[in-house]
Write a protein that binds this DNA or RNA. Structure first.
Lengths: 234, 234
DNA sequence: TCAAAAGTGTTTGACTTACACCCATGA
DNA sequence: TCATGGGTGTAAGTCAAACACTTTTGA
């Protein structure tokens, strides 16, 4: 499905070829998330054969984290704020053996609406178009992991612009979790967590009281993320 | 360090060779944990050049989970109870480009002391011998993840034999966490969690009151594990 | 009868939840 | 002055932590 071919490919023959050390194709795929307008969005790219996750081969000996960042940057005008390895799959498709190393990236939304580049487009996670089976697996697991991580980390912050209102922050949580939260309890918790700093600025938007803008203190709560000690962030 | 060589290897030249699609070596490594005698143990194998994590190349198009299981079984007489992908690294060593896909495996202790096979031996995690840098990274991260997972999953059960006393279960937790727990609170929590079934059997060991033996109900709390939906377990 | 581990409850403080109204602003 | 989202407190219930003694057994 991912690739149109004229001549059917003999997978068994390809897998049976022991004449050389087997050389799988390597593919790094990135699920780029952002939140906008109450929806959790991810990037898909247009390709012959359909929509795909942003992907690419790593250069020789290039660390996967670097490759993933390169792919993320090539696929959006936004800058990824958080990058985390997801899973590595070894699979057989119509072109033979392929290794897929998958990543999650979180992007700050700009408030101007998400910006796409290079023929890529944003899709709400609750209304995704058809994608290849491996892409589907990767996306499904990315969602599981992202939702779970909200509970015990501060990842949601990476979906927001540098300053934001508490209502925007709450909206990001609700978007990812898919259910509403109590305003007072949410504010109490997030303030008590001590990771926010109130700025002097305010946002005036519409005919109502302006909202205080906050930013993060201490983006370096690496401990909580359960990522490896050597992993670079952003 | 992992490999002795006579002729120095020109890494840059190897990385610069674009004449063919680059073909990294693939290596699946498994950190095999078990708990015995109040210590958390892992398996290392004897190799020319020193001790190493159990490892091996995947067969062409073999899923990594299957390869990891094969490697785990080749390295211990015990049967792994839980297997989870840890991280995938792309690195340059003295032999060129290598991709390391790492796994954690948890083994039931038998009470008879852990059984080793194939020139492998058990080492307490708080007294590990020198290993290669990649092995060290993998082991460090495996410990971080294992300890963290204790908090929100029931993984510790997989380190125990099919039936066990509550004191043994508590000991496994204390071993992994590295600090003591309150007996009454531990029992209350673990019973309240509803994942244990008391058997009729008892264990009489020493001149004191015999302990009730328990076993697990519902090992299938896949949800809590934050592993991918497609991952097979054990 | 002694040593050694098994087993058992209660109290206290902390945290979580549910819930409703006034405030500041621009139109 | 009205519509709109921003901002605030309290009471009830649930959960986690600290803490010590009695029971059963074999030697």
């Amino acid at each position: 499905m991912a690739q149109t071919r004229i001549v059917p490919h003999d997978r068994k023959a390809a897998a049976r070829d022991w004449s050389h050390p087997p050389a799988p194709r390597l593919d790094v795929r990135v699920v780029l998330f952002t939140a906008a307008d109450g929806a959790l969005l991810l990037t898909l790219e247009n390709h012959t054969g359909g929509l795909r996750l942003p992907a690419g081969a790593p250069l020789a000996a290039e660390p996967f984290d670097i490759a993933a960042r390169r792919i993320a940057r090539g696929s959006t005008a936004l800058r990824e704020q958080y990058l985390e390895q997801l899973y590595t799959l070894s699979l057989n498709d119509s072109d033979g053996w392929m290794i897929v190393v998958s990543y999650i990236a979180l992007l700050s939304s700009t408030g101007l609406g998400p910006v796409a580049a290079n023929g890529s487009s944003w899709h709400s996670v609750d209304n995704l178009p058809a994608v290849s089976a491996p892409d589907r697996m990767v996306i499904d697991y990315a969602l599981v992991r992202l939702r779970a991580k909200l509970g015990y980390t501060t990842v949601a912050f990476h979906l927001l612009p540098p300053t934001f209102t508490l209502t925007e922050l709450q909206g990001a949580y609700e978007t990812i979790l898919g259910h509403p939260l109590d305003k007072r309890n949410f504010r109490r918790r997030v303030i008590a967590a001590g990771i926010l700093a109130r700025t002097d600025a305010q946002r005036r938007m519409g005919s109502h009281r302006p909202a205080a803008l906050y930013r993060f203190q201490s983006l370096d709560d690496r401990e909580a993320y359960l990522t490896p000690p050597w992993a670079e962030r952003a």
